[in-house]
């Protein structure tokens, strides 16, 4: 067991940031904490990295208690805070060397661990961190968090503000790190990244909605979802919302995801209704639920 959280609660003044959170992360697992801004992800990360103390509950990281054994945890975890926390006026090389030094190691000693990632930014190693693109900052921050060979890696929204190409590369890197037996806890507001984790916890308003593998979570969704499209999006949404049998109506890109309350729902009846609302070019097709559909269903 790499991370063991039981009944953690944390409040700031009136705001309940975390309410009775419990879950476990196995050694070598890539675990995703999925939820919007303000869900409590960062608070949980800070409790696990010993930066905050919970009001209630206990947590262990790499076998150490986050309160009484905080010094041991600080020696054995890597942490990448929300905004890539780098020294903007130091070059790539200097940032990496600095973090290696304060963890009592050298870049050479653990170079094999970061080699894959560092090679991509090495050509720019004399450039200052402040002048790097989001994707390069992200890679450098990851190198800095890995340089002391941590047992557990905490990545707080590592892909926020980063372009799609870098995001994709980043997840590929995480997969490779996982093979080196590093436990990774990663948070993200992007539902589409959830599928890349071994297991995920959906979190909103300080509460965990569901914990499971991404495939299982999608299967838990009890509703059949229909992709509905028509020539006028605005009218379509309004018509569906006034349809008396609707269970949920959510715009979803070029479609509307529609679920019905009846068990014997017939799409043809809906089509007739929509036509009566002066909509044309109507398409209604079954589709599979996504993590996002499930999240909304659970958060409803």
């Amino acid at each position: 067991m790499s991370i063991n959280i039981s009944n953690i609660s944390k409040s700031y003044k009136k705001v309940k940031a975390l309410q009775n959170i419990s879950f476990k992360v196995e050694t070598g697992e890539l675990f995703g904490l999925i939820g919007p801004d303000g869900a409590g992800k960062t608070t949980l990360f800070r409790i696990l990295t010993t930066l905050l103390i919970a009001n209630k509950g206990t947590a262990k990281v790499a076998g150490f208690d986050v309160v009484s054994d905080y010094k041991n945890i600080r020696n054995s975890v890597g942490y990448m805070p929300g905004k890539f926390s780098l020294y903007q006026d130091l070059t790539i090389e200097e940032n990496l060397e600095f973090f290696a030094t304060i963890f009592g190691t050298t870049v050479e000693e653990n170079y094999d661990l970061i080699k894959d990632i560092y090679m991509q930014i090495e050509p720019f190693k004399t450039r200052r961190a402040g002048k790097l693109s989001g994707g390069m900052k992200q890679k450098l921050a990851l190198c800095c968090a890995l340089i002391h060979k941590p047992k557990v890696l905490f990545l707080d929204e590592p892909t926020t503000g980063v372009d799609p190409v870098s995001r994709k590369e980043f997840w590929e890197m995480l997969k490779r790190l996982q093979q080196k037996n590093i436990t990774i806890l990663v948070s993200t507001p992007y539902m589409d990244e959830a599928a890349l984790c071994d297991r995920i916890a959906l979190i909103q308003n300080g509460k965990i909605l569901e914990i499971d593998t991404p495939e299982a979570i999608v299967k838990h969704n009890p509703n059949q979802i229909y992709n509905v499209s028509a020539d006028n999006m605005y009218k379509l949404i309004n018509s569906l919302k006034t349809y008396k049998h609707n269970h949920s109506v959510y715009p979803f890109g070029e479609f509307v995801h529609y679920t019905d309350r009846r068990t014997d729902f017939n799409p043809k009846a809906l089509k007739v209704y929509l036509e009566s609302q002066n909509l044309s070019n109507i398409h209604i097709n079954k589709t599979v639920a996504t993590i996002e559909d499930t999240f909304m269903e659970l958060a409803k």
Binding site: T50, R74, P81, G82, S85, L86, Y87, I102, F103
Partner: peptide, 13 residues
């Protein structure tokens, strides 16, 4: 402000 203090705290320093 930069957030680097968080990393310094979560280090053996």
């Amino acid at each position: 402000e930069l957030g680097t203090m968080e990393i310094l705290l979560v280090s053996p320093l």
